[in-house]
């Protein structure tokens, strides 16, 4: 069930203290990125205190769960290209250059082409989508993303009848990502969705969170967000989107097929072979004094997406 939030104060209108403290840094970066000059229609610039705001109107599907604190959303991340500790991405991702940035879209489409990041920022009206994010490691957050449905981009390239799947490749820059030296996963990181999953309105391309452009550690400048799947499906820092007839290879599935399936839908009834997925701990809320909370089927988005998997054995096709 979707309960719409009253549109009074968006989290984006509240600037977190940490951002405020880093305002000079943000201004400098924004200047270098040409953001200040590119005051496009969707890119409203804040007068103060940061110039990297990304205006978003309240979107559909937002949860009423309390958003996780900005410091945790941007300080506790899995982004192995920058190291495998949760604090590594916040520490090291700053080195990644996110401008200029282009995303190549090709494969089974009538109009293959590439999109510059400035163009993506203006491709469709930017909505705020407050989604639950459930990590396969059994913790979760609530994140106010800014972006638009991936279907907006897909329609523009006109997939052919052969396009059954979409694969996503992400940045793999050796000079800024020391984690690429670790043989933990195959690089560049790859993810994939079935066409109907990619077209689902819940699936978004996110360009920001908390009303600002994406911090690097969260997958700047543009990432996928698929809220009913485990977090690793939501590939970060996208550089290529390809439409294919065959099911594409995905990084975690390649690394350990028995543990991470292609679908990886959040499912409390299908445990990871090594740990239970029945419950989770909400970051910033479930501490020493509270029990773990129950994980919801499809991360609470069953009403919207269960139909995509009708007739499938979710225990086998996990």
């Amino acid at each position: 069930m979707i309960i719409r939030r009253p549109n009074d104060i968006l989290p984006s209108e509240i600037t977190s203290h940490s951002v405020y403290r880093r305002r000079r840094e943000f201004l400098k970066q924004a200047g270098a990125l040409g953001l200040i000059a590119a005051s496009g229609s969707e890119l409203a610039l804040a007068q103060s205190p940061t110039a990297t705001k990304l205006a978003a109107k309240p979107g559909r599907y937002s949860t009423t769960d309390k958003p996780t604190a900005y410091k945790y959303v941007t300080g506790y991340n899995n982004y192995y290209e920058f190291g495998t500790d949760k604090e590594d991405p916040a520490e090291y991702a700053g080195k990644m250059k996110t401008r200029p940035w282009t995303v190549v879209v090709d494969g089974e489409v009538k109009k293959p082409r590439s999109f510059g990041i400035e163009e993506l920022l203006k491709l469709a009206p930017i909505e705020e989508r407050i989604y639950r994010m459930r990590c396969v490691e059994a913790w979760s957050m609530v994140i106010p993303w800014s972006g638009f449905s991936l279907s907006e981009l897909i329609r523009r390239v006109e997939p052919t009848g052969n396009a059954k799947y979409v694969s996503f490749s992400t940045a793999a820059d050796r000079s800024s990502m020391h984690g690429l030296g670790l043989p933990v996963l195959e690089w560049p990181y790859a993810e994939g969705l079935r066409m109907d999953e990619a077209m689902h309105p819940l699936t978004i391309l996110s360009l920001g969170l908390y009303g600002e452009i994406l911090p690097n550690q969260n997958g700047a400048p543009v990432r996928l967000v698929v809220p009913w799947k485990y977090g690793f499906k939501s590939a970060k820092s996208l550089v290529r989107i390809s439409f294919t007839e065959q099911q594409p290879k995905t990084a975690w599935n390649t690394a350990a097929a028995q543990e991470y399936g292609f679908y990886s839908n959040v499912n409390p009834e299908v445990d990871h072979p090594r740990w239970s997925q029945a419950t989770e701990r909400r970051i910033g809320e479930d501490g020493f004094l509270s029990q773990r909370r129950k994980t919801l089927m499809f991360n609470g988005y069953a009403e919207q997406v269960a139909g995509l998997y009708k007739g499938m054995d979710l225990k086998r096709q996990f």
């Binding site: 300080g75 506790y76 949760k86 604090e87 913790w139």
Partner: peptide
């Protein structure tokens, strides 16, 4: 001061 996931 145990961070985002104190129990872990």
């Amino acid at each position: 001061a145990l961070g985002a996931n104190p129990v872990e």
